[in-house]
Nucleic acid binder design. Sequence first.
DNA 1: GTCTATAGACGGATAGAC
DNA 2: GTCTATCCGTCTATAGAC
Lengths: 197, 197
Amino acid sequence: MTARASRGRRPGAPDTRAEVLAAARASFAEKGFRGTTIRAVASAAGVDPALVHHYFGTKDDLFVAALEIPVDPREILAPVVAAGPDGAGERLLRTFLSVWDDPAIQPGLLALVRSLMADDSAGLVRDGFIPVVVGPVLASLVRDRPEVRVPLVASQMIGLIVARYVIAVPPLAQMPAEDLVARVGPVLQHYLTGDLP
Amino acid sequence: MTARASRGRRPGAPDTRAEVLAAARASFAEKGFRGTTIRAVASAAGVDPALVHHYFGTKDDLFVAALEIPVDPREILAPVVAAGPDGAGERLLRTFLSVWDDPAIQPGLLALVRSLMADDSAGLVRDGFIPVVVGPVLASLVRDRPEVRVPLVASQMIGLIVARYVIAVPPLAQMPAEDLVARVGPVLQHYLTGDLP
DNA sequence: GTCTATAGACGGATAGAC
DNA sequence: GTCTATCCGTCTATAGAC
């Protein structure tokens, strides 16, 4: 994402590049990586396939351009952990949902999730994301035995993502975030600090 | 699966058909539908691509042959609902895990889940599987407001599938089924019959 | 900048020899 | 039954005209 503000008037042509990127984002989010074709993206944006290559290079390049998640999980979760374990379940879920419900971020996250499930890149989540990103963050919130509590928390949050955003089962997909916080938050809290066999 | 027992000796050639099917199952489970190619399946089974077609017809046919889920969810869940709402969370989870942990069934289920997440066939789960299969079954177990309780139960079970079987996050993937029943069962019970805002 | 034309690779499917 | 050879379609990617 290059800086787009510069003085003087913008080029007369509409921002074709942005339209291509938006089309790519939507397609990757909906159909996954293998399911989207450069041709389909170009057609959706009303341009020629060659133009897509001209802007973004290879299909892989287009994919990473379409992700562009403007969120650092550790940064956004910092205030959640700073407030301590009390009510952490609700706070965690609230910030989590606020990110996922952001229409500017959602397509990128969806595309990411879709591609992670489709390929055998599950190892990336298992050995990368969970232990190095979310693990340490959550570990500071749990009472004990993080190695069993963190995965349980993760399982419920993964299920929420898949049910609400990927499958969009009603009424989960339409449910206001605060309702979900009230209903699922206590479960997360239980996994974090409750009595567990 | 045709009956394989008949008197007299089996044909001298090893059961190539079964090997092809096994290779297909593994590939579909690991790489999803789009990710597996007939050629790769044939190569993994040590045979010619044309032979795969000869046995199974199109790639779609091969896929449904590789699924071959020998389980009717409604049938297997019948005893769970018959015993009533008390302790239903644990019972539900136990039968659920016993099916998923069955090595004869798991690859088919995994392939199914992978393909459902990859394509935009989410509608199939949302409008088909959940409301017509699992919905009615679970609805008879909940205390009230099935339209909010059933999706919550579904979200936790989906999360368990993805975390334990698709991503295989440790130690969730290695955890004995009974440990999971003891830890997650109460949450399901809470979603089924507990106090919910 | 935008499009046309096409090269090159890959995968599904079929026909037919052995 | 099993394999060779091949057709046909789709896709990425590039070269080059306008």
